[in-house]
Design a protein around this nucleic acid. Structure first.
Lengths: 208, 208
DNA sequence: GTCTATACATCGATAGAC
DNA sequence: GTCTATCGATGTATAGAC
């Protein structure tokens, strides 16, 4: 009984350390990338010793994988949460505009998410399994959800719904990448609304 | 006279070393990223001593900047070269299909270019000036050239040519990123032709 | 200008005490 | 389970000979 208590107590403390390590690792990896992040800095930020990190996550790659998988899970909840069952009665022009504008605004405000995308792409050569986890858990559900909406909507009359979804998402992602992540907005300024209007016009012009 | 000769001769040898360093640095940085690349490996690959690298490029960041600027210049020539003055008589549906298909095919074959994009994005947080050089010398001319074509073409009747260009390029870049660089083609297979057809249909459906 | 040799810091990872 | 202390390798950068 006391032994169990002790064990549970110790496990709790151990899990608390593991969580602190994950949080610290997230912070450091997102800011500096994989190679430029040291285990010493993570240990310091998490207020644990390096040996504790190694006992929990094996090695640096193990921790990195755990951190990224954690982030992917977290963002997956966001994507799933955004599956607001869109009313099929509403004008799709308005629905699409709202979805696009919200995606643009949210990403522009969320620097952490930009860092996350940066590291997924930047490390996709050396960590292909991480890139694929991203595709499987974020890109795929996102594309499939929007495709379902496109298919279900009678007014849109799209010949190839999934291809159209790829046009829409691609337009938005590229815009965010160029303007925000690559700091292009000072060189090639462009208003969200102009892009959103043109995009929704192109997709909905066949209507009725 | 002999002194000048000697000087020229030495300068030539020096420039040859500098070029070898640039080539080796390009190879290593593209393959392993900035932080994971060591000056020792570059020196070995270039068959020079580390001291020679430092005397030419100052420090690691200096070499990295030189390497990337070199690549940007090189790709700039490619972008400029692709400005085939498209015949305005040709059916824009065909012209756009050709441009899109060629961009997809060329990038899918060119792994070095994919590595280049990966490093531009991956290091855009720590090297914003490199990202901006990319935008200024590659993205901007690309968008402007295609926008000129869209504006000049009477049949297209586009309300916002530049926004439409961003839709087109965004669609293609995102597709390449998801399928090739993030290794998504095994998870979400999709044919080039389907994307190109949908994209050109969307852009040209207002025709005449 | 280019080399060899080396200074000095920091890296990932582990041994051993508790 | 967690710590301190440390190992060996490797990193950037430079001094000094030629």
């Amino acid at each position: 009984m006391t032994q169990i208590k002790t064990k549970n107590s110790e496990r709790s403390k151990s899990e608390a350390k593991a969580e602190a390590i994950l949080r610290a690792g997230m912070q450091e990896f997102l800011k500096h990338g994989y190679a430029a992040t040291s285990m010493d800095k993570i240990a310091k930020a998490a207020r644990v010793s390096k040996a504790t990190i190694y006992s929990h996550f094996g090695d640096k790659e193990g921790l990195f994988n755990a951190v990224i998988q954690d982030l992917v899970k977290d963002k997956f909840q966001t994507v799933i949460g955004l599956q607001t069952p869109q009313s099929l009665a509403k004008d799709p022009k308005i629905v699409l505009s709202e979805i696009a504008s919200r995606m643009l605004d949210n990403t522009q405000r969320d620097r952490t998410f930009q860092d996350f995308i940066r590291i997924i792409i930047g490390e996709s050569g050396r960590f292909p399994e991480i890139a694929q986890a991203y595709v499987r858990n974020l890109s795929k559900p996102g594309i499939e959800t929007l495709t379902q909406y496109f298919k279900a909507h009678p007014k849109l009359k799209l010949e190839d719904p999934e291809a159209t979804v790829r046009v829409m998402i691609g337009t938005l992602v590229y815009f965010l990448m160029l303007q925000e992540m690559l700091h292009g907005k000072d060189i090639l300024p462009f208003e969200n609304e102009r892009l959103v209007n043109t995009l929704t016009d192109l997709i909905t012009q066949h209507q009725q």
